[in-house]
Every structure is written in structure tokens, then in C-alpha cells.
Design a protein around this nucleic acid. Structure first.
Length: 422
RNA sequence: GGAGCAGUGGCCGAGCGGCUGAUGGCGACGGUUUUGAAAACCGUUUUACCCUUACGGGUAACGGGGGUUCGAAUCCCUCCUGCUCCGCCA
């Protein structure tokens, strides 16, 4: 959410932000509603002031004076309904429009229409050249008996799968390893609820907008989170934190559920785009300062790079262009890891910086020691690792000519010292 | 799932129709005193929005929403949350 005062002061900035991000929002209408609402509320306030003044005198009055005061009160009361009605009509529209206003992208974010115009920052690691014909992860998974997509689909529908044996172990190993990396870096591990109320979805910015991507438990009015970002960021929703307690750094492992509506026919092959996966996520909640936000944006990006380097996977970092940014994101780095079967670097991580966009939506503040004022926090998040997507590059890049797969060195301790899957 | 009880400021806890944004205690902060600290004493201590250059003023909020009333923390309805007992089950 954006401070309405900023929108009043510079509407053009927010029209441009929406246009750059390809987001629909009627700023003119918002300001119109805002003015109407303000006028009505001021009138209501004047009436209330009068009512309070007259009402307070009632117990002291008797006879005619009292009757007169009561009559005056009745008159004031009669003025309220039309104004009230206006507020009741405009307030919901105002609230809804406010949820649609986009956070302007940072000035250094490249202008672009979609993910094809994201800008590569740098490449890390060497892309492996094979001296034999490599298999893709689906083939490897089937041949080694560690991935069973066929039965996953049979039992749960398209985009579902089973991992079994060493496949399941490798999956757990990479998650556990990533969690341990984050622990070593001072992040607090969290196990989180995944059925979230609408408020949490709205607070993090997923609602309104991503309802179609979300599995919803209609009987209970709860939503299956698509990422632990939701519970981790909303953890202290509505609270006023102590400045000394910031930054809050969380890491959480959770299953992630995504409907992938509108992606029909896209990335249907293999384990790339699936309805359910597990992910270690990182969230930082820090003070309201651009410098702090930028500092932690770099930090969460580098945390994930530590994981990828440890896994010895080649990747590149891209700056996401305006057209591919979400409503609340001021800037986003994606990490794309090399996937031989796709012949490309593909998104495995996404590091987002929100400033106070999410904090405003969920009323998450801290008390600034110096001024005693309550100030909205800044929030950021990034993937630490998402599996089984990360198993695609791991399996494909670590495969051997004989069809076996070497276990990455850092994961071997998590698999009881096992060095190879065969 | 059934029955009962309860939700007040950072915390504890009064109030049960107007003089209560709310007594008191604790905590926190500032001051006096002290070589320093403690203690004691004095003072301050919610939030949102609106008006105002400022000083300041106004409105709203006692779990959420609605109602009764000239007026509600206080009465009524409803929802939510917590606790206790019973049932059921990991």
C-alpha cells in the first residue's frame, strides 16, 4: 500500500509506476473518491463536535431549555444519514483502489514489457560440456527410479509427482543443507502455518490479484500459501516492534501450493512448473530506510548465491524489468540456474524489495527510539532453495556417462555419506 | 462437537448509562536529591485521521461488527478469540 499523501502530492508518479508495471489502476478516480471522502468525513466530524457540545449540556438543563437542546440534537442527527451514506459508499471503493496502487520501481530498474527484457547482471560458474549424450531429469529420474511423474499425475492430476528413494533423500538433503546455511548466517528458523487468512494474503500483496493462483479452502475461508513468504512476512502483522529488535531475519521451510492457472500448456514437461513443491525461504524485516533495504537486498541475494556456489551450480543474476515486477516490488533480482535440458538459465530464485509496501498493508510498524514515532517497517524476501526445481540442474549437471548421478559434495553428509545415486 | 466463563491502555487491574481516553498499581522515560547508584519525591507515558505556518484544537477507538439511547467501556444482538469442564481423537 502507498501513503495516500504521496499520491495526492504526485499522482503522475503513480500513474507512471502502474503503466511501467503494466498494472491497471485509476489514480484519477482514487483522488476523486479521496476528496469526496475527506469532505464527507470533515462534515461528519463537525456534526459530531456539535452533538458532543449540546449533549454534554443536557444533564444540567431542565424544562424548556432541555427540550430546546433535545430538539437541536434531533436536527443535527437528521443531517447525518446522507453524509454517512456517502462515506459508506465511498470508503470501500477507496480501500479497494488503494490496494491496487503500485509501488514505483527504483530509478535504476530497467524499463521493459516482460521477462524477456530482464537484464543480465553477471554469470557465475562454468556451464558443463558433456562428452556423452546427457539425459534430462525426467529420463534420469525414471531410469534411476527416483522420480515418478506418471503416478503423481494419476493420483493428483497434471503437474504432480512422487519423489522416491534417493530422489526423496536428495530433495530433503538440499532443503536441510540450505536451512543450515541460513542458520549459520544468523536467520531464525521457522516452521509456519500454511493455511492463511485473507488478511495475510492481502498484507503480503497477493490479494487482490493472485486469487486465481491460490488454492482456497472455501469452507474455512482459508488460503493455501504459495510460499512461506506469506506467514514469515506477516508473522508480526499489526504489531509495533521495538527498533532495537530490527532487523528480524527469518528462514522457513514450507510446502508451496500453486494453481498455475493461466499457465496451461506452459512448462508442462518435468518438474519445472508443478502444483506443489518445498522451499526454504528467507525474509528480512528492517527499519524504514532505503539504505537498510538496499543493504539487506544484497544480503539475501548473496545468501542464495552461497547455496548455489556450494552446490557448484552455474547461474546468472538478472535485474527484473518494470513489466515483470509485481505490484509491490520496488526492485527484484532473479537468480537463474543453468538447466541443460532447457538449454537455458531458468529462474530458481527471486529476491524482492518492497520498502514499506507490505508493511503498510499489514500495519507492521516499529517505534523509533529517537522520536517515539511509530514507523512502517521495510520488508524483503528471497528464495533460499526450491526443490524439486533445483533438482533439475543438480541431476542433469551431476549425471555420469553410465547413467548414475554424483551427489554434490555438500549434500553427501545429508545422505549418510552417499556419493552417487545409481 | 456440547456446556460455562472471560476479552479494558506496554502489562496487571478498576469502572457497569453522562463529570471516564478511561481510578489505581507495575513498567518505561524526564527531573529533584546523591560522589555515583539505589530509595524517595515530582512530572510524562495509546493510536489513527482531520484542521492549523506554529502554539494548539477536533473526531474516533475499552476484542470486531450492528442495535437501543439525547448520550454506551457500561444495556441488547451477532461474530471472533482465549480459558475451564464434558465428549471425540491423535
Amino acid at each position: 500500500m502507498i501513503d495516500i499523501k504521496l499520491i495526492r502530492d504526485d499522482p503522475e508518479r503513480f500513474k507512471k509506476a502502474a503503466k511501467d508495471k503494466k498494472i491497471e489502476v485509476d489514480i484519477d478516480r482514487l483522488l476523486q473518491v479521496d476528496t469526496g471522502l475527506l469532505t464527507a468525513k470533515q462534515r461528519l466530524q463537525e456534526i459530531a463536535t456539535e452533538k458532543n457540545r449540546v449533549g454534554k449540556s443536557i444533564p444540567k438543563l431542565t424544562g424548556d431549555e432541555k427540550q430546546q437542546a433535545l430538539a437541536e440534537l434531533a436536527k443535527l442527527k437528521a443531517e447525518e444519514p446522507p453524509v454517512d451514506e456517502k462515506v459508506e459508499q465511498l470508503q470501500p471503493e477507496f480501500d479497494f483502489l488503494m490496494l491496487l496502487v503500485a509501488q514505483p520501481a527504483d530509478d535504476d530498474v530497467p524499463l521493459g514489457k516482460d521477462d524477456t527484457e530482464n537484464v543480465e547482471l553477471r554469470r557465475e560458474g562454468q556451464v558443463r560440456k558433456f562428452d556423452f549424450k546427457p539425459k534430462d531429469h525426467v529420463q534420469l529420474g525414471a531410469d534411476l527410479g527416483i522420480i515418478d511423474i506418471e503416478r503423481g499425475v494419476r493420483l493428483a492430476g497434471t503437474r504432480n509427482y512422487f519423489l522416491k528413494g534417493d530422489g526423496a533423500r536428495l530433495h530433503l538433503a538440499v532443503l536441510q543443507f540450505s536451512m543450515d546455511v541460513m542458520l549459520a548466517r544468523g536467520y531464525t528458523p521457522m516452521s509456519v502455518p500454511l493455511l492463511m487468512k485473507d488478511e495475510a494474503m492481502q498484507g503480503t500483496g497477493y490479494y487482490p490479484g493472485s486469487e486465481e493462483q491460490t488454492y482456497r479452502m472455501e469452507t474455512d475461508e482459508l488460503n493455501l500459501a504459495g510460499t512461506a513468504e506469506v506467514p514469515l512476512t506477516a508473522y508480526r502483522m499489526g504489531e509495533i516492534l521495538n527498533e532495537e529488535d530490527l532487523p528480524l531475519k527469518f528462514t522457513g521451510l514450507s510446502t508451496c501450493f500453486r494453481r498455475e492457472a493461466g499457465a496451461a500448456g506452459k512448462d508442462t514437461y518435468g518438474l519445472y512448473r508443478i502444483h506443489q513443491f518445498d522451499k526454504v525461504e528467507q525474509v528480512v524485516i528492517c527499519k524504514n530506510s532505503v539504505e537498510e533495504s538496499n543493504k539487506y537486498h544484497k544480503e539475501i541475494l548473496s545468501n542464495s548465491e552461497v547455496v548455489l556456489r556450494a552446490l557448484e551450480l552455474p547461474y546468472r543474476v538478472v535485474v527484473v524489468c518494470t513489466g515483470d515486477l509485481g505490484r509491490g516490488q520496488a526492485k527484484k533480482y532473479d537468480i537463474e540456474t543453468w538447466m541443460p535440458s532447457r538449454g537455458n538459465y531458468c529462474e530458481t530464485h527471486s529476491a524482492s524489495k518492497f520498502y514499506d509496501f507490505q508493511a503498510r498493508r499489514m500495519n507492521l510498524r516499529y517505534k523509533e527510539s529517537a522520536t517515539k514515532k511509530n514507523i512502517f517497517c521495510h520488508t524483503l524476501n528471497n528464495t533460499v532453495v526450491a526443490s524439486p526445481r533445483i533438482l533439475i540442474p543438480i541431476l542433469e549437471l551431476y549425471q555420469n556417462a553410465d547413467g548414475s548421478v554424483t551427489v554434490p559434495k555438500v549434500l553427501q553428509p545429508y545422505m549418510g555419506g552417499q556419493e552417487v545415486i545409481k
